[in-house]
Nucleic acid binder design. Structure first.
Lengths: 224, 224
DNA sequence: GGCTCCAACTGGTAGGACCAGTTGCGTTTT
DNA sequence: AAAACGCAACTGGTCCTACCAGTTGGAGCC
């Protein structure tokens, strides 16, 4: 194995270090406006190019949002750039849809368990709304959106922000897969699909965890 | 809520699209050398700045490795840039160690189940070696490395590349947490810790899944 | 007071210049 | 002829300047 990974240091590392320092010092918090590129340039004795490459990296990670004419802001949209990442992974055959579904199943099972242990009424309400929208969905697109909303609420219910982060990261290919699955779905499967979602929700309300986990399993069998 | 997220298009998107096109067309595959920045510049009618910003993004995602004097290469080091991401998440209090452990537990539980269904002898051998190193570890550092190797092998055993990707992403904070935990660990806990790892391995060999899951749970109770 | 408009910000892009590693080929040396 | 050297032509890394294009806020006008 080569062990010289960390040897290289780039100019824009200074910018990253500076931003992180400001955050650690409490000078910078979420929503704040970063110093302008030209300010950072002079302050850190760097070219604007280097500053911009650092900001691109932060923007790519979802921590910075640069708006033309306004400035750059510290935000929390972590996972935004992951859409690109996953499309590349798929393109390079470094993953496939089976692994994708397996990860989703893994996350949602854990999320369900966490949610069942301490259900959040707001999230339950969201899930209720999503299930109703699924049941009443006229178009496929509505069904799609409702289904996604349901799972988003379920993940949110877990309270784990990392789970949601990964879910967001999976959102882009997820939409593709969801559409593929739903369009090829036999109409006869649609009713059980809705029923499964409702059972998951109800089991969270009644605390019947094992029943809910079974419903989750069935859900992934149906949709995979 | 504002809904104009996707309106903006940047110059470097052209580069990303071009690279992806080349990959899709089979012109470019892992390990290949990308066209030089100056070539891309003229070929796509962009400034070198824009080309570089695109390459930085790809490099940040771990798909490109630029080497001074040699060129840029298409690689698969996805997750390399995630170390930065997680340190930022922690810095901004967008996650914490509890969520971190919960994610690890979630992944490893699923990975164990997958591994139990179709155990891979090579990975089992790696795990065996890791357990032995744990049992014979003299220094804390050795224990640390052996423990990490064990879990790396377990995740690899699942066969799911996304799992390994996320594990790599978690590696940086993982090392910090692992060290924190192990250094504060009572010496009396060390033996059971090794025993737990061995039990996980043995259960994979004997196919006693429920026993293995219990051992995994105990592991996370011990180490958290 | 409310309006318009312009000046002074902001980021986005372009192109040139130079530094600094790497590579390979031609020349020189042995 | 084989080995060593060295230069030229790549490569990415950085800096600079200039300009375009949105946004903002205040000066001045209605």
């Amino acid at each position: 194995m080569d062990t010289n990974h960390a040897a290289e240091t780039r100019a824009y590392d200074l910018v990253l270090a500076y931003i992180k320092g400001e955050i650690a010092a409490g000078e910078l918090k979420l929503g704040d406006k970063l110093p302008s590129e030209r300010t950072l340039m002079t302050r850190l004795s760097l070219s604007r190019n280097s500053v911009r490459e650092a900001l691109r990296q932060l923007e790519n990670m979802g921590f910075v949002r640069s708006v033309h004419g306004q400035g750059s802001f510290l935000v929390n949209e972590a996972g935004r750039g992951f859409a690109e990442l996953f499309s590349m992974l798929l393109l390079l055959h470094q993953t496939d849809r089976q692994e994708f579904w397996e990860l989703r199943r893994c996350l949602e099972t854990s999320a369900f368990a966490a949610a069942a242990a301490a259900p959040d009424s707001a999230c339950l309400a969201e899930m209720e709304q999503a299930v109703e929208q699924m049941e009443q969905a006229g178009t496929l697109e509505q069904l799609e959106q409702a289904e996604e909303a349901f799972h988003r609420a379920l993940l949110a219910c877990s309270g784990n922000r990392l789970f949601r982060l990964i879910q967001n990261a999976l959102a882009a290919p997820g939409q593709t897969y969801r559409r593929e699955t739903l369009t090829t779905l036999d109409e006869s499967v649609r009713a059980p699909l809705c029923a499964t979602h409702r059972r998951i929700l109800e089991s969270l309300r009644t605390g019947r965890t094992t029943q809910g986990l079974a419903a989750l399993e069935e859900h992934f069998r149906l949709i995979r």
